[in-house]
């Protein structure tokens, strides 16, 4: 793992007229890693991505992508040349055919990967003669992905890339992401598909109401997040379990359910010391971690 960051923000904030979309975001995305950006609808993911690419001006704070300042117009131009971005709505010229679009876009990039273009064109079964405006949502997404992947970028930023794809398309997308990552491309993608994130991501960032609540490697999430269900002979001593790492405690009659992001061992030790009659430990999947994180506190 390299500590070098391809995306770095300091207190990045975006306020719309009456709402704070992104609040003092300190984001650090590692080089050569696959980082997933999770959050509910309206959590501020797309706003963050648009600020990173210079499409929206931050209200305050600063950030850099591949070392270039995002708010400096000249540097922003440089960074956009090396970052491939697939937007949520996949804007393309509707009057062009698929083939014309590929030829048009490739002409802007001197080190266009013809091999990647050909492979994906075949894998995605794109119809060369069809006009872009007549493509299905899934086909449109595939075309947008092909255009991004063939550019030989240093960094790929994808806003919900799997939206509108069928299961085969999703599998192809994930394989392409893995292949790109193996070639040294850093990847930052937002998604609602927990299952796919859980398979390929190295790092997970969870945004909720504009705040970064989780920024952890999936290895750590898997290793340390645990749910510990305890049964006591009488009313459970809930307060005894408010220790570092315990994110949430649910109590019901003589039972306690403890959700811990670390220190599960300490919880178990304490439970035994307090004469728990039953101690059960279960790992917590990313879906549960996400749901627990975005739950009203």
């Amino acid at each position: 793992m390299t500590d070098e960051a391809v995306i770095l923000t300091q207190a990045l904030t975006k306020t719309y007229r009456n709402a704070e979309a992104v609040r003092a975001l300190n984001l650090s995305v590692g080089r050569n890693r696959i980082t997933a950006f999770l959050g509910r609808n309206g959590a501020g993911k797309s706003t963050t991505i648009k600020m990173l690419l210079g499409m929206l001006r931050p209200t305050s704070g600063s950030g850099s992508v591949l070392g270039w300042e995002i708010t400096n117009a000249k540097e922003n131009c440089e960074l956009r040349r090396r970052v491939a971005y697939v937007a949520e709505d996949k804007p393309l010229y509707g009057y062009m055919t698929v083939e014309q679009t590929i030829r048009f876009v490739s002409s802007f990039y001197p080190d266009w990967r013809k091999d990647v273009e050909k492979k994906l064109f075949k894998d995605y079964e794109l119809p060369p003669e069809r006009k872009v405006k007549t493509l299905s949502k899934g086909m449109r997404t595939k075309l947008a992905l092909l255009l991004a992947f063939a550019r030989r970028p240093n960094l790929l930023i994808l806003d919900e890339p799997s939206e509108g794809l069928d299961p085969v398309g999703i599998e192809q997308l994930l394989q392409t992401l893995v292949a790109q990552s193996a070639e040294g491309v850093s990847i930052f993608f937002s998604s609602h598909q927990i299952g796919e994130v859980e398979r390929i991501a190295d790092q997970v960032c969870i945004l909720e109401k504009g705040c970064l609540l989780v920024d952890a490697s999936l290895d750590n999430l898997r290793q340390f997040y645990r749910r510990i269900d305890l049964v006591f002979p009488s009313a459970p001593p809930e307060g005894e379990f408010r220790i570092a790492g315990v994110e949430r405690i649910q109590a019901a009659s003589n039972r306690l359910s403890v959700f811990a992001s670390k220190n599960a061992e300490a919880v178990i030790e304490r439970a035994h010391d307090l004469n728990a009659v039953s101690v059960e430990v279960a790992p917590v999947g990313l879906r549960d971690i996400f749901l627990e994180t975005v739950k009203e506190r």
Binding site: E171, L174, Q175, V178, A179, S181, A182, R199, A201, D202
Partner: peptide, 8 residues
């Protein structure tokens, strides 16, 4: 690519 997991 075979396992569809991060190369890392």
């Amino acid at each position: 690519e075979e396992l569809v997991v991060s190369p890392n």
